[in-house]
Amino acid sequence: MKRTFNYVVMIFVFTAMWIILNEKAGPMQIISGIGFSVLSIFFVNYYLLDDDYIDSYFLNPVSLLKYLFYLVFQIYKSGISAIFKISKGESAVKIIKYDSCLNKELAVCLLANAITLTPGTVTIDKTKNQLSILCFQDDEVFSSGSGGKSCSDFEKILRGI
C-alpha cells in the first residue's frame, strides 16, 4: 500500500516537471507526461537500480521543503559571516572529524551536501557516519558537537526524511 502511494507521488512530481519544461498545461501534455513518467520508472526498475531502492531513497516531500527553507536561511546566515572573514583576510585552516547521529545513508549524504553548501565549511571524506570537515581555525560551529551526543538542528530535521 505504502509502495503504491510512493509510486503515485513520484508520477505526480515527474508530470509536474514535464509540464514545466513544456510551458503548457493542456490535456495532451498531461497524458504524455504521465505516460513518460510511468515509462521512466519502469525503465529504472528493470535496468538501472535494485528493486528495493524506493523504500530507502524515498524523500518525504513535507520534511524536504522544511529542510530546504532551513538550508536557505542557514546559507544566508553564514554567507554574511563569510564576508567579514574575507575583509579580515585570515587564512589558517584545519580539518575536524564530526560524528553525526544519523544512521540512514541518504540522510548522511544530505547532511554532507548541506555542510558543503554553507560558506566556510567543505566536506572532505565520509566513512559510515563520520564526516571529515575542512573549516577555519577559529570556527566553533561543528567542533563543539563532535565530542558529545548532541545533535545540531540540521540533523533533527533530517531525521524525519
Binding site: 554567507g79 587564512s91 553548501l117 554553507t118 560558506p119 567543505v122
Partner: peptide, 16 residues
C-alpha cells in the same frame, strides 16, 4: 594566499 581558504570562501559566496 592559501588554496584551502580560497576553496572554503570563494565558490560558496558564489552560491549565495
Amino acid at each position: 594566499r592559501d588554496f584551502y581558504s580560497r576553496v572554503l570562501i570563494s565558490s560558496k559566496v558564489e552560491t549565495v
